[in-house]
Design a protein around this nucleic acid. Sequence first.
DNA 1: TTGAAAGCGCTAACAT
DNA 2: ATGTTAGCGCTTTCAA
Lengths: 337, 337
Amino acid sequence: MTIKDIAERCGVSVSTVSRVLNDHPDVSEKVREKVMQVVEEVHYVPNGSARDLVKPKSNSIGLVVRGVGNPFFTEVIRSIENAVGQAGYTMIFHQIASGEDELSAGASLVQSKRLRGLILLGGCFDYSKEQIAVLKVPFVCCSYTNSFGGLKEDAYSSVTINDQKEAYKAVELLIEQGHKKIALILDSRHDHSVSELRYKGYCQALLDHGIELDEELVEETGKFDMESAYGAMHRLARRRKDFTAAFVIADSMAVAAMKALSDEGWNVPEDCSVIAIDGITMSTYTVPTLTTLVQPAEELGERSVRILLDMVEKKAGNRHMELETSLREGGSIRKLD
Amino acid sequence: MTIKDIAERCGVSVSTVSRVLNDHPDVSEKVREKVMQVVEEVHYVPNGSARDLVKPKSNSIGLVVRGVGNPFFTEVIRSIENAVGQAGYTMIFHQIASGEDELSAGASLVQSKRLRGLILLGGCFDYSKEQIAVLKVPFVCCSYTNSFGGLKEDAYSSVTINDQKEAYKAVELLIEQGHKKIALILDSRHDHSVSELRYKGYCQALLDHGIELDEELVEETGKFDMESAYGAMHRLARRRKDFTAAFVIADSMAVAAMKALSDEGWNVPEDCSVIAIDGITMSTYTVPTLTTLVQPAEELGERSVRILLDMVEKKAGNRHMELETSLREGGSIRKLD
DNA sequence: TTGAAAGCGCTAACAT
DNA sequence: ATGTTAGCGCTTTCAA
């Protein structure tokens, strides 16, 4: 079923049908109705490929994700898909393995699907000018920014929380409750990524409050998943008995860490307080409820889409947006006396 | 950058470039190398739309999902995306709201993107012949089947567990541990969907073991999410104090239900044993670990893709596959003495 | 082994 | 207000 068939059935030309389909003016009401009726009748849907081909621009934007396993991302992805759909665009979803390069993956996707723009989720924090040059369309880094690269502000867009600052807040919260021996569970100290930033926030908070950094209380998981986080906390709890609190860099990892503590016979928060950053649905239902700094997942997605589409539609240039977390008080922190 | 540009740079015709790009024989080694070299050099990627347009068939398959919020689906989706990519196809992902009709959504997607086939996740269990007629391509129902419709076996494909049987197994497991007062948390008794099937399994298991069905122990959530499950268990635990076990129809809901029990001062499994079906990653990390019948999420996805592609490539017709769960023994069940 | 050219379904400029 | 027609980038006959 093509536009030609519709035209024939209506006794009009293809261009008239095309006009109706694209809401152009200059079509008589009679003809418009007739066409719409036939279109409904035969369930005609235009061929997107043909459309994309003739239009200088498609109406698709791409989402490249590294780490779909991360429950926090799931919530952001949902919000992005939603916002993209609302705006009348189609989202092309592509997940990549941890070793893959999101920029080349994105570049291929852009070319083969003629994408108007790209949203990157879970990408690297250290792009260089040369690296992003392969991307010929606007893009926005969602939930991260170019903290370790030399990119100019106007060379890319980003929507993210301030990882270092929020980590600082989390640790400070523990300190305010009287904790001094505060463990840290992170992926890697020097990953040039979220771990490193939150590590810095952790160190800074300790420093500012006159607590000496004890590197032995910092445990690296080596991977950003629950299993590794469980293992890390397990090792730590066996090695050290003297910490009274732990900051885990992500909710999902914190859930696993609490389980590890429990399996080692520790009680949360009596023996060890726990705080994290993210605010996934699941961590509302742990026992105790995880106290965490909630990232505005929905807003993160919506803002990213808005910024991208503004660029795609030439309404604005590259922008950066820093969102704030909000404290969700659970029951995983106790005041030390 | 088009195929024409490549042709010019190589001093050959577009058809020759096309041949190289599509691995056709009848191209001299010299020319092939030259073309490939230029292609690499300029990072040329063919325009998928143009390709799809001229080819009678695209290489895309669609995935229509209702209920992306369900963590179990997340794992299945990942596996599907993976398998589709492995096979050299592209996956077009589309999520729909709970009220939307997956068949019309799928039909539109098929036509506009010229999809070769469709995988439906979280769809209805009661399609009629007329309803599926709108789909002009092969499709497979992933994680459900036509339990409440009048479809002929060869009219559609499915990959799923036997919901009723597995629910039966779950409840039987509780009975074998001495439980007689067994609560049930489900979405709705008569939703013509997974809840209804698992409800049947629950009833049958009670019946077969001479336990009278107590409808007051069956609590409907009305929605398939954690919040509703929490509310349902909360209500139940306030109303009745005499049940010693609960079967919750999904892992995610079970996690929320355990939290509700805990908030009501109940201990799992001392005061109430809990079992569920699904086996999401998260429920390994609850305290206690949830005992559950694990659906083979990865296999569910892989099989669905395999069956679909076999049909798309005309290697086989419609097929149905029933997968088995495996028991993951957590700590949420205690033996009643 | 290569090239020329038709045509996939659609939109938009141009003509009427 | 409507029709005619030239491409968009690609694959695939058909000819050479």
